[in-house]
Design a protein around this nucleic acid. Sequence first.
DNA 1: AGGGGATGGCACC
DNA 2: TGGTGCCCCTCCCC
Length: 551
Amino acid sequence: MPPQTRRMAFPKVVIERDTDSEQSSSEEEEEEEELEEPEVLVESENEEKVEEAKKKGKAPITISLKKVCKVCKKPGHEAGFKGATYIDCPMKPCFLCKMPGHTTVTCPHRVATEYGVIPATHKNTRNALGYVFKRQIRPRIPPIKPAYVIPDQVSCAVIRYHSRRVTCLEFHPTNNNILLSGDKKGQLGVWDFRKVYEKVVYGNVHSCILNNMKFSPASDGTVYAASSDGTVSSTDVETGIALSLMNLNPDGWRGPSTWRMLYGMDINAEKGAVLVADNFGFLYLVDTRSNDRTGKPILIHKKGSKVVGLHCNPVQPDLLLSCGNDHFARIWDIRRIEAGSSIYDLAHSRVVNSAYFSPVSGSKILTTSQDNRLCIWDSIFGNMNSPSREIVHSHDFNRYLTPFRAEWDPKDSSESLAVIGRYISENYNGAALHPIDFIDISTGQLVAEIMDPNITTISPVNKLHPRDDVLASGSSRSLFIWRPKEKSEPVEQKDEGKIVVCGRDEKKRRHRKFGGESDDSDDDKSIRKGKRFKSQSKSHSKSSLSVKVRR
DNA sequence: AGGGGATGGCACC
DNA sequence: TGGTGCCCCTCCCC
């Protein structure tokens, strides 16, 4: 027998007399008992039935085949897509919340995000340091939460801009219309989304995955990037001229056990240092003046495990937050940092994709873990043994996709709004779409889920603009700029002015309608390319509105 | 239009 | 602790 792929393993033909193919095999067998006629067994797979037929001494007629679950290989149920809805194998724990006893379809967390919320416990932060910190910070945080402005409409896009999937995004620190994007190939895109056709891709910066980038606090024309090629680069955004600050693989490829890849990166402006971390658990410091490594690598996560994220506290830059594949996020004081010297270790049940301090006070931490949970850790001086809140959210997937990372809204002074792409699809007016979620982490509620019928791919990379009501998202190889509906351009631009299509089909697609309301056939086609639901959903929008907002 | 490949985590020995 | 095989709700290309 040739090795079976998943598709081949899917049950083949079922021809049953008087029975629905959906019925379980036990029912099939019962029915067979009642049959008087001799049977013919066409599918030889069903050995039980062959044996049975031999015993009875008659040739079976029934063309029959047990439907076998492709996940657990057991009969009686099936897993896989029914239209665009994926049916879980009931033998496995829920794909969404990871608890046994139910599947994603009936998971309480699927109905509304707020059910997944574990309420915040009151925390006593009685130590003096915590008190002082709170006194310093509290005046900055207004007691009343501002009304959220959600960028819910695609205002422009570059389709197939990168040749491989997008891995990170960064807005220019001073020019409001410049978006930088990195991809799996190591290329760096610079796009002016006001003049939509003004875009470049620099291919000389890195040779593989551009994992993280950050603008230089000293010069807003310079961006630093960390890559799986083991180098840290400093690139001039205008010219694309790149400088390599550190190379961890000077001897080239000597196999996977020696090849070092850089993932987490941040900049400590006070120290004038770029902090980077590799796939073996080590942290490196690079001086931005000498463009040279300072000190020795420091083991900050389990030896041999990937450190995927680094973040310096916005208020106290010496506080460093790291996260990685050893299932921990850790807090450090970089003035005295050495292996094992972490201030706190925040435990998760699986890999931690990201960990970020809150943008204004730096007193909260938001982590995204592969266990399908967002965790909020309230005070860096409080009890860090458990998160103050856990929010169940579908983002458990890593292979083939850029890991999902929940990010703070840098404009939200109340430090409660976060954005993250969703993995599982939902039925939106008959189309299977993967929305981008806005979550109020102070209540755990889903504030908004945004989607566009033309975007059928998953959007794991999302970045909120530091000053404007703009969201940039990376979905597969394409980039999208979202703005609030009410703030859409008063004069509708022509489509070709808003959407740039790169790659082979450029001419064909150039005049295609994109986004907004549309009932023309072209639009329909693009939806059909994605998965479709058999019947239209009642639970989601009836209009062509591309956003659902819960307040 | 359907198969295949790249690819990361983790359980298991 | 390293190797191996399995997971399997993607995306893109041929």
